[in-house]
Computed example of a mutant assay.
Amino acid sequence: MPRYALLIEYDGSPFAGWQAQADQPSVQGAIESALARLDPGFRDGARIAAAGRTDAGVHASGQVAHADLQRDWDPFRLSEALNWHLKPAPVAILAAARVDEAFHARFSATERRYTFRLVARRAPVTHDRGRVWQVLGPLDADAMRAGAAHLLGQHDFTTFRSTMCQAKSPVKTLDQIQIEELPLPQGREYRFHLRARSFLHNQVRSIVGTLERVGAGSWHPDRVAEAIAARDRAACGPVCPPQGLYLTGVGYPQAPFGSG
């Protein structure tokens, strides 16, 4: 059976998350329903596998999944057919590629990249409603960068891990945290770019919620180091809401779509 990698973009607002659920809409379910119209295997209950199982309300611009199909498709025609059958769901197949059977969207991944968008201004957001986290007060980007520096490298991230996390170990290596500050009419947008081989459940949202407290002046940047050392969920700052979070990319030893 030929295996195909899919590069996927979606608005997570109407979904209960990536993972298929019997009684709630999911991104996985939407794509598998579209595949069922194109391939006999998916009419019999075949499944796709993804690089990251994003939570309810989380978006993606670079999710990757793979599917084993019975038909031998031209990749471009496959992506076009899937996009036709995905309508009107806010899910798009940006690209499809034929891959070796050893490729696995989750287990072959060497890095995952997330971006979190935070808007600080008094007036409500309009165009980006449901796609950013809004706070009212201004934030100190330099203080947040100083706090973020404590998180780089390998740490026990128990403090920044959901109590429902199923990962075998809380030890992860965070390779990058970059914080951009962008002007908005009567406000500022802060974009947090994080990169690691893998993340714990709610790790990114826990980190951004904590750094927002630093930016607001409620926490000293060094308190982030104390929070890590505590290895205690109670030492974490607030977990920010999901709507500002985006899975923006997944890295592989050989990029299936021709770029990282």
Rank of each mutant, 00 (worst) to 15 (best):
R122G: 11
P124D: 10
P124H: 05
T126I: 10
T126A: 14
T126V: 14
R129S: 11
R131I: 04
V132R: 06
V132W: 08
W133H: 14
V135Q: 13
V135P: 12
L136F: 15
G137I: 08
M144D: 03
R145P: 01
G147H: 04
A148Q: 03
A148T: 01
H150D: 04
H150Q: 08
G153W: 09
H155R: 04
H155W: 02
D156W: 06
T158Q: 12
T159R: 03
T159P: 14
R161M: 06
M164L: 12
M164V: 06
A167P: 00
K168R: 12
K168M: 01
K168A: 07
P170H: 03
P170M: 04
P170R: 03
K172S: 00
Q176C: 07
Q176L: 15
Q176S: 04
Q178A: 12
E180I: 02
E180M: 11
E181V: 15
E181F: 13
E181Y: 12
L182V: 15
L184V: 09
Q186R: 15
G187F: 13
G187M: 14
R188W: 10
R191C: 01
R191G: 01
H193E: 08
R195H: 13
R197G: 08
F199N: 00
L200Q: 00
L200I: 00
N202D: 11
N202S: 11
Q203I: 00
V204S: 03
S206A: 15
I207K: 03
I207L: 14
V208C: 04
G209F: 11
L211F: 09
L211N: 10
E212A: 15
G215E: 10
G215N: 10
G217C: 06
G217F: 05
S218M: 13
W219G: 09
W219M: 15
H220A: 15
H220I: 00
P221S: 05
D222L: 12
A225N: 01
A225T: 05
E226K: 07
E226S: 08
I228C: 02
A230N: 14
R231A: 07
D232T: 03
A234G: 11
